[in-house]
Computed example of a mutant assay.
Amino acid sequence: MLPKEIELDFGSVYIHENILIAKLNEGILFDVESNQKLLELGSQIFKDENYGYISHRVNSYAVDPMVYFESANKFNLKAIAVVSENEITRRNAEEVEKKFYRNSNCFKVFQTLEEAVEWIKTRI
């Protein structure tokens, strides 16, 4: 059975079907090294099965957009969603971060977690 919640030094990851949902800690810099840990976790849990990733941004933190270059190379990571109630966070993800992800059709921003989960399911 898959673990439901995994604690990492930079936040928590929740497993929901074939989706990793991350709630990262306030004030961190989510960089390439942190992203590598999430990608390794995805490989361990899902093996070669397709999966999606949701960044549930309940806390404020910085994202190094270079993480999307590495993520785009994972053949079984089929979609990335960003969820935030904060309009500025959503706009930044849509206007800046999305440009760094190779397949912009597989990167989408949402206001609610439920919307993001339903969209990810259509991509995997």
Rank of each mutant, 00 (worst) to 15 (best):
M1W: 08
L2V: 14
L2C: 01
L2R: 13
P3S: 11
E5A: 09
E5Y: 07
I6L: 14
E7I: 12
D9T: 13
F10R: 01
S12Q: 13
V13T: 14
V13C: 13
V13E: 06
Y14M: 10
I15N: 03
I15R: 07
H16L: 10
N18P: 04
L24M: 09
E26R: 09
E26N: 10
G27F: 06
I28Y: 02
I28A: 05
D31Y: 01
V32K: 13
V32R: 04
S34W: 00
S34Y: 07
N35I: 00
Q36H: 10
L38M: 11
L38C: 00
L38E: 07
L38T: 02
L39C: 03
L39W: 04
L41H: 05
L41F: 03
G42E: 11
Q44L: 11
I45W: 08
I45D: 11
F46E: 05
F46A: 08
K47P: 00
K47V: 12
K47I: 02
K47E: 08
D48Q: 13
Y51T: 01
Y51A: 00
G52E: 07
Y53E: 02
S55Y: 05
S55T: 01
S55E: 09
H56E: 08
H56K: 07
S60T: 10
Y61N: 09
A62T: 12
A62E: 14
V63Q: 02
V63C: 10
V63L: 09
D64V: 00
D64Y: 03
P65C: 08
P65L: 06
M66F: 08
F69K: 05
E70R: 06
A72N: 07
K74W: 03
F75T: 11
N76I: 04
N76H: 15
L77S: 05
K78S: 12
K78L: 04
A79H: 05
A79C: 06
A79I: 02
A81N: 10
A81Q: 03
V82L: 08
V82W: 11
V82T: 11
E85A: 14
E85P: 01
N86A: 05
I88K: 14
T89Y: 01
R90M: 05
R90I: 00
R91V: 03
N92A: 14
E94G: 00
E94S: 11
E95D: 14
V96S: 00
V96D: 04
K98Y: 07
R102W: 09
N103F: 08
N105Y: 04
C106G: 00
F107G: 02
K108V: 04
F110C: 07
F110N: 02
F110R: 11
Q111L: 13
Q111S: 12
T112A: 11
T112R: 02
E114A: 08
E114I: 06
E114D: 14
E115M: 06
A116P: 04
A116H: 07
W119M: 13
I120P: 03
I120T: 10
I120D: 00
I120C: 07
I124L: 10
